[in-house]
Design a protein around this nucleic acid. Structure first.
Lengths: 234, 234
DNA sequence: TTCATAGGGAATTTCGAAAGTTCTTTCGAA
DNA sequence: TTCGAAAGAACTTTCGAAATTCCCTATGAA
């Protein structure tokens, strides 16, 4: 469970929001699990109203589902949702990268190189277990962010980020039942090279990268989120 | 101001959310306006906590901005935001229409025809003032929704809807200072014909339609939301 | 047995007072 | 006069009890 660290100028509700989101995305709170106020109140040490505000925000992000006057449930998972997420991510990542390659300057290029280097070094150090490492996950997300970082569209970056988070939730579920990982570093390097060359090929590479990941997630974890099925609460 | 009508199974917070959203989108609450709890409590007749929940949700939708421990403000407007909205709407509407033309069946086609007919009849009856009519605005939104309605992506439809709402807010602001409207029915008819023909030309037509609207909004109302400027509260 | 209904218990939703934070004004020293 | 600190006002945020709603079970009639 995530720790409570709140600086000045931040609200308690905002703090709980972040912690709840982390716990849902990392499946400490499982998909479909009922979110009881009493339980959450003990866990996060805040009042009903504060909790309610955080849950309402997460509902707007589709990370929890509000059920009228019957409380909240952690968002369920399904293969069709994952496929929809994948298609929309492809659309946004392609356009974000296309625009970044058009507008990106030297600074953009150097940030990509730096992000790749950090991720690659850590991966080499960790070996096969890289997928479970929280820091590597952050480096990986940041590498992909830098690729689209020069697209000059706050709205695209925001939507893309939310979809990335939701997709990562599926990767996380699937990884528990996984024993093999493909060498992502080769793909990442190819994407980086094409992007820095401003080659249109980069768009197809990023699409392939995303779709291949989804294929693997379904292959290893698909049984956990077959359509219409919801995981039981712990 | 919107009326309070709450059925069973809906929460009071959800009701206030809808009414607040309407009032922000229709600029009864102006861009940049400070949202004081005391004022809103009187206006919507609910408690602090309930208001807070609604505001938190609107913050997640970018319709209000949360300022740490200094309350909430109705989302500001700017030309760069409008242009960003326009670009993203183009991306989503194009892809939604492309997929609808691929997947759409007879039912899809007939819904487009029906939606166009309703909108067109009302426009003819209203004459030049159609733009201010709440019912025409609903018909117009519904016509555009039917065009992408067969895309089979709940996520695309959801994102598209939110962007459509935010863009409509700009149209609304601009329309107060506008005396001329182009005959949209010609454009709509051309888009419909191309879509029903499954012609790729439809994608360029919808893009032109969106961008032309934005150009007009900026021409007539651009002075109201020049960048970095925020309208004073009433 | 099956269905409908009423009652009891559990959970959610709402409320307004109390605590906490920011903004404004006042006052005194440089 | 100008600047800075301190006191006061205004507003936001948090809290937990009270009201409301829902769900499950027991009861009785068809």
């Amino acid at each position: 469970m995530t720790q409570a660290i709140r600086g000045k100028g931040e609200t308690r509700a905002g703090d709980v929001l972040v912690r709840l989101r982390d716990d849902i995305l990392s499946c400490v709170i499982q998909p479909g699990e009922k979110l009881r106020f009493e339980t959450l109140r003990d866990r996060y040490e805040v009042s009903f109203s504060t909790l309610r505000e955080a849950l309402a925000r997460l509902a707007a992000e589709h990370l929890v589902v509000s059920q009228g006057q019957r409380g909240f449930v952690a968002a369920p998972v399904s293969i069709s949702d994952l496929q929809d997420l994948t298609d929309m991510r492809v659309l946004l990542e392609r356009d974000g990268l296309r625009r970044s390659m058009e507008f990106g300057d030297d600074r953009w290029e150097s940030e990509i190189l730096a992000a790749y280097h950090r991720m690659d070094r850590l991966q080499k150090r960790l070996g096969e277990a890289y997928y479970f490492d929280a820091e590597w996950v952050r480096h990986h997300e940041h590498f992909h962010l830098t690729l689209v970082g020069a697209c000059a569209s706050p709205i695209l970056l925001e939507m893309r980020h939310k979809l990335f988070e939701r997709a990562h939730r599926y990767r996380r579920i699937s990884s528990q039942f996984r024993t093999q990982w493909r060498p992502k570093d080769v793909e990442h390097h190819a994407i980086m090279d094409a992007a820095l060359d401003r080659s249109p090929e980069a768009l197809d590479l990023i699409e392939g990268h995303i779709r291949e990941t989804t294929r693997n997630v379904i292959e290893f974890g698909g049984h956990l989120f077959a359509d219409e099925m919801v995981l039981e609460s712990a």
